[in-house]
Simulated assay, not measured.
Amino acid sequence: MNIGELRNVNGRLIGSIATRTIDLPRIGLNPVQNDNPRAPKYEVLALNVARRWVQIGAVWEATMKRSGEQFLAGSIDDPSLPEPLSIALFPAADFDGYMVAWRRDTMRSDFGTGFGASNYDREVQGDRTRSGDRRDRGDSGFGESTAGARGELVGAGGPDDLDDDMPF
């Protein structure tokens, strides 16, 4: 999925990246000057709220296995992100620059079997389960319900049991 583009502006690669939750309206690629063959090709920089350029990632030269086409691959990371964002930069056909794409490395398993297999699901073999499995105990892993038949709160105390010392 394309999430941005970088254009050659006066000899500098400048552009933006935007997703539903990330908006980097001004990013740039700074060439890395290093003789080490394992060094990144570019640092990925972003303009922060104080209007200073800060490094948020790096990209390396890569080659597609099937076609041999060259592209750049790396990641963007920042303390505000829950995890690094893997990106790939492909030469743009329409202009002098790159299209920025991303992909999730593995299928998400935090939503159960509908979105990828979890370790729990891999342990279950058909209708048979291993001894001590949560399904043997009738436990979904979330504990006992606190909702009664009509939706009322049961088994967890009432509103009088709330801790008033909590700030929220």
Rank of each mutant, 00 (worst) to 15 (best):
N2P: 06
G4T: 09
E5R: 12
L6H: 01
L6N: 04
R7V: 02
R7D: 01
R7Q: 09
V9E: 15
V9S: 11
N10Y: 09
R12F: 04
R12W: 02
R12I: 01
L13I: 04
G15F: 08
S16E: 13
S16I: 00
I17Y: 02
A18I: 10
T19K: 11
T19S: 14
R20S: 13
I22E: 03
I22R: 07
D23M: 03
L24G: 08
R26G: 00
I27K: 08
G28Y: 04
G28D: 04
G28V: 02
L29H: 03
V32Q: 07
V32F: 12
Q33T: 14
N34Y: 01
N36K: 13
P40Y: 02
P40A: 07
K41L: 04
Y42N: 07
Y42C: 02
Y42P: 00
V44C: 04
V49P: 00
A50P: 00
A50Y: 14
R51G: 07
R51T: 10
R52F: 06
R52L: 10
Q55A: 08
Q55W: 06
G57L: 05
W60R: 10
W60A: 07
W60C: 01
E61T: 14
M64A: 13
G68Y: 11
E69I: 03
E69V: 06
E69Y: 06
G74D: 08
D77Y: 13
D78A: 12
S80L: 08
L81D: 01
L81Q: 06
P82W: 06
E83A: 15
L85H: 07
S86A: 14
S86L: 14
S86C: 07
I87Y: 09
L89K: 10
F90L: 15
A92W: 10
A93Y: 01
D96Y: 09
D96G: 04
D96C: 03
M99D: 14
V100P: 05
A101G: 07
A101I: 02
W102M: 07
W102P: 00
R104C: 08
D105Q: 13
D105M: 12
M107N: 10
M107D: 12
R108H: 04
S109F: 07
S109I: 03
S109P: 00
D110W: 03
F111Q: 13
F111Y: 12
F111D: 04
T113Y: 05
T113S: 11
F115P: 00
G116D: 04
A117Q: 14
S118Q: 09
Y120A: 06
E123P: 00
E123R: 10
D127G: 10
D127L: 11
R128S: 13
T129C: 05
R130Y: 05
S131V: 09
R134L: 15
R134Q: 11
R137K: 10
R137S: 08
D139H: 12
S140N: 10
F142S: 12
G143A: 06
E144A: 10
E144C: 01
E144I: 06
A147I: 12
G148W: 04
G148K: 01
G148I: 01
A149N: 12
A149C: 01
R150N: 15
G151I: 01
E152L: 03
L153P: 12
L153H: 08
G155W: 07
P159K: 11
D160S: 13
D160Y: 08
D161Y: 02
D164I: 05
D165G: 09
M166G: 05
P167S: 08
F168R: 04
F168L: 06
